[in-house]
Amino acid sequence: MELALQVKNVSVHYGGFTALDDISLDLQQHKVLGLVGESGSGKSTLARVIAGLITPDGGEITLNSQPLLKKRSRAQRKQIQMIFQNPDASLNPKHSVRQILSEALLFHRIVDRAQVEKRCKELLAKVHIEESGLDRFPHEFSGGQRQRIAIARALSVEPSLLIADEPTSALDVSVQRSVLELFGKLKEELNLTMLFISHDLGVIHEISDTVAVMRQGRLVELNPKDRFFANPESEYSLELLSAVPRMPKPSTPGGLTT
């Protein structure tokens, strides 16, 4: 199996506080790694380190067998894109959807100037937003729709790795489901490699191929999904899994579609 991303011995310290403690993990090409952990476990810090938003104090990150240095080239930055948790803050409130989607297209010369409009519409279609949304502003969309626009923006630069940091946590359950379906569809269509962060084990189960568990800045488990959910390796994973509230079992067949 080909490796898309390799994280080796990465550490981040803030003063005396260790946010990431010697993290090593690999992401396989075209697979989804689900990253689980409670608040303060360092999962968002790891995402930001991989995305190049935080410079680690130690360790190295390799993308497609190319080391990512402290100062990344534009081409390297393009390769890794990120979706954030808060749909209210992920889009610049003063920019129209057209500006949001076309900026990186123009800057990185991904398509000709004449093709920009067409490409923006294609991007919107990919995330199931009407074309008429192009000239609207972020506040005119619902949380789920904004998250879709953020996904379209990330896809505009044709990344090879997509990091999603709790992209559905702020959404209602029904909207969450449809956004997750979109992620699943895009993963198939575009052959994306994904790092999907969530504290919600149901979400992780839905989308991941592999599951990594973090606690207090350390990686405590890394296993294939089925193994993790049926028979986790670490004590902490077991604790997490048994703490999840579960729906009552259906009494009659067909009563519940869980």
Partner: peptide, 10 residues
């Protein structure tokens, strides 16, 4: 986060 995403866009 919109500033962070502008940064990741390069």
């Amino acid at each position: 986060e919109w500033v962070a995403s502008a940064q990741t866009l390069g």
